[in-house]
Design a protein around this nucleic acid. Sequence first.
DNA 1: CGACGTGTAAC
DNA 2: CCTTTTACACGTCG
Length: 360
Amino acid sequence: MDRIILHVDLDSFYASLEELRNKDVMGKPLVVCVYSGRSEDSGVVSTANYKARKLGIKSGMPIAFAKRIAKEKNVVFLPVDMEYYRTVSDRIMELLEGEAEVMEQVSVDEAYLDVTEKTRGRWVKAEEIAGNIKKKISDREGVTCSVGAGPNKLIAKMASKHRKPDGLTVVKEKDVKSFLENMPILGLHGIGPKTAKVLEELGVETAGELASFDLPMLAEKFGENTARLLRGRASGIDDSPVEPRERQQISRIGTLKEDTGDIEEIFNKIKELAEDLKGKIGKERVYFRTVSIIAVDTNLKTHLKSETIAETDDIEAALKVARKLLEGFPDENPETLLRRVGIRVSNLVYKKEQTTLKDF
DNA sequence: CGACGTGTAAC
DNA sequence: CCTTTTACACGTCG
């Protein structure tokens, strides 16, 4: 029996939600931004709706750059409102949970669904379920999504990307080969610009070419393990299960008002971030063992320092470690000024469900 | 093997 | 002009 996995991707989710609650921006190009607070327009574009994308505004682009493109064009710029997006997302994820045997939420706007048993491996059934999901999400929340169906997560993911917005793409087991054959390597999930560049230097341009490329030659560039992984991806092989995720780390990072090397100033920012982190740790009900500081310097290079301690859920303990790590930083990186800093806890241990006598 | 630091990728 | 959060692989060290 074929394994059948769905991947559901909410279309330019943040922008769609803003259009919904802001009737007057409907039909206009809209850009949702993460303002860093350093200057008027510092920060980046989080999500652009399709009208804005057509103008060339893309996520990840500096806001100032987007505004230059938008000049005189009646483009709406709004700040992100994660709380709101999270609330709507939670409702949608709950809905999706009911449509599958197992659901794996990947981010606010993405999830995998294992529907192998429900469909008894029949692709027509999968397409039907996918259609139902699209209709329900649109009816209840007023947003569209793109759904991909495939024999594994990798193919389902690429299928959902294949046609959007509001797409539905089914790639049956037997169609995987032709689906991938002429796909440019950058279109493969998990291959970014760095890897693509190296591959291009080897003369590899499509997934088809990568799938049959000489393994030793690949291993020379990427190491045995990654080489196998890359070739596997290119042939559409992926055995990873759809499973609910347990978070492995929780972090908060922020941008400093200005570049600085002053420990006190930096630590103040970290304290601020830790406050937010504390709430998250409580909500997730976790203990942590490792504390890290994240430091992004003037050249945007990221430095990480971490230390493992005895299991705790005390944010003060984390701050103590952070302080110590921070004090060590200037010696190891003299003359380095910081632009952004953050704090992270990892090595998480989930607290057990509170079981009281009442539960029996 | 666990801990730590770095690089890559995706959202 | 340059955000935020997470995951994973790999090399190195003790």
